[in-house]
């Protein structure tokens, strides 16, 4: 594990991580963390281990995400990339380790609170509401902001009305921002795949999240669509100041888009740094190209 962090170089650790690595625990560490939260990390994974039955998906993952950066998580198939996103969004509960979100530590992130904690995500396999129009799919992204009861909504006055108009106008803005206005009235299920991916991004963005988790946002897209998507993700970060954590297979896309790259292999983080650093990292090259004879200690297998 320590070996992996040797590659990190420039990335400054927040104190809580260094202490975690040093094996400190207990309330002393907690107090220091309160100070650390003032620093610029918005999301931390500390020693996250996850397994399904006997299959280990993640081993002792430590990861810090700084405010406003685009962090890409890459790795071969089955390396545990999606598992990380699912742990952060509370879909999976890790066996050990914690996730820090908006200053609090969670053993399992409460999924139903996720939107209120400022996290929005998209799914690897589309999770749009196909029976709703594109506009409604985006409007419903404001669900966590709804305060009015269903009776107020039936009557349609006061608070319910304000919420409705607000959600609608924000949704229209986001559709406009992502160049989706022309399909606003269509049922989401009838759109081509690339556009559906974009609608999912719109639904996540309308919630105005601090952290945006994108699970393979460009999977299955053509080169043109990928380029568009890269543009949209970067524009979203620049416009809303959103922190982006994304998973992607296409190395070319990742290197161009992200500020920092974390590389997973067999559930372990083997590298974490700027795209340039990661590209030169021998362990990353090994993981992608495969190397058998030298790996005598069995690390990472």
């Amino acid at each position: 594990m320590t070996l992996a962090f040797g590659a990190l170089g420039s990335a400054p650790f927040p104190p809580e991580l260094q202490e975690h690595l040093a094996g400190l625990d207990g309330p002393v560490r907690r107090d220091d963390e309160r100070q650390a939260t003032v620093s610029d990390t918005v999301l931390d994974l500390v020693g996250v281990t996850l397994s399904f039955g006997g299959v280990v998906a993640l081993t002792e993952i430590d990861l810090s995400v700084r405010r406003g950066e685009i962090l890409a998580i890459i790795g071969p198939n089955g390396a545990g990339k999606s598992s990380i996103i699912n742990v952060i969004s509370g879909v999976y509960q890790p066996d050990r380790g914690q996730v820090r979100l908006s200053g609090r530590f969670y053993a399992q992130v409460p999924t139903q609170q996720l939107a209120r904690l400022g996290v929005a995500r998209t799914f690897q396999n589309l999770a749009l509401f196909k029976g709703l129009s594109v506009l409604d799919n985006v409007v419903i992204g404001r669900a966590h902001k709804t305060q009015s009861s269903f009776i107020e909504q039936i009557v349609g006055l006061g608070r319910a009305r304000t919420e409705q108009t607000d959600a609608r106008s924000r949704a229209l803005d986001v559709l406009d921002f992502l160049h989706l206005s022309h399909v606003g009235d269509r049922l989401a299920g009838t759109l081509p795949y690339g556009l559906q991916k974009r609608v999912e991004l719109a639904r996540a963005l309308v919630a105005e999240p601090d952290i945006l988790l994108l699970d393979e946002p460009m999977a299955g897209m053509t080169a043109t669509e990928k380029n568009e998507m890269v543009g949209f993700v970067r524009a979203a970060r620049d416009r809303f100041g959103t922190t982006v954590v994304l998973i992607e297979h296409d190395i070319g896309v990742v290197m161009g888009l992200s500020d920092r790259v974390a590389v997973l292999d067999y559930g372990r983080k083997i590298a974490d740094g700027t795209p340039d650093e990661v590209q030169r990292d021998q362990r990353v090259i090994d993981a992608y190209l495969g190397v058998a004879p030298e790996n005598e200690d069995g690390e990472g297998i």
């Binding site: 996720l114 939107a115 995500r121 029976g131 419903i140 996540a204």
Partner: peptide
């Protein structure tokens, strides 16, 4: 349509 997605966006 999708209970998990609904929960994640705050429904």
């Amino acid at each position: 349509e999708n209970e998990t997605a609904a929960r994640i966006i705050g429904v």
